[in-house]
Amino acid sequence: MESVKITNGKSPILQLKAVSGSYSPGSYAVNRVTTDIYANTITAIMGPSGCGKSTLLRAINRMHDLYPHIKTTGEIILKGKNVLAMDPMEVRRMAGMVFQQPNPFPTMSIYDNVLAGYKLNDIRLKKREKDDIVEQSLQSVGLWDEVKEVMTKRGSFLSGGQQQRLCIARALALNPEILLMDEPTSALDPISTNKIEELLLQLKEEFTIIIVTHNMSQAARISDNSMFMYLGELVEHENTTQMFTKPQNKRTEEYLTGVFG
């Protein structure tokens, strides 16, 4: 298929070139996806179950390396560097990830959870630096006022929505180039979901966000651009308003209007 392009005058922060992902030889969960992602935008990846949206997202930070049977091919250029040729640990420091289930590390305090990225990378910080990073990261996810008195409690002490914001803070603490979110609100209640959505709209001032969502209205509410995937192919990548009002592709239209999916 043809490459789909969105431009807003800047050069892309992330370029996907014929990216494919395969769980078994000969079959492709993601099939030759080519597109560009621009800085300080929120891009939603939508599509029915099994269309390859999570597979595509997890290819970007090399999570597939954990499972040797999954093969990723093509080129993924993050800030001018080819992700697939880089050291995966370096890639993952540049691309933060937030998972579907909030997963703060259960044995660490809230404070240590925010700093987990530094600890796990054996980066030693001074007390001042630590305090600054923790405060700033928690401020940016709107959790600082809620947890500043209980910093030594375990991460699992918080509510589900707070835990998820803690996980976002943990990813932000490493100051990543891009934030990858795999259905980050699907395990949360509507109020927590709403908070996270508002948070994402603030965060895009500083970060670039790619969010996989099965929730079309969520994509419509928060994303600048939307990608629609179907059977492993990128069907359409378009300005969100444009896609929801005048989809270019028939399958996109059918999905958005509930004919399938």
Partner: peptide, 8 residues
């Protein structure tokens, strides 16, 4: 996965 995703 969360640990590895932080570059550990």
């Amino acid at each position: 996965e969360a640990g590895l995703a932080l570059g550990s």
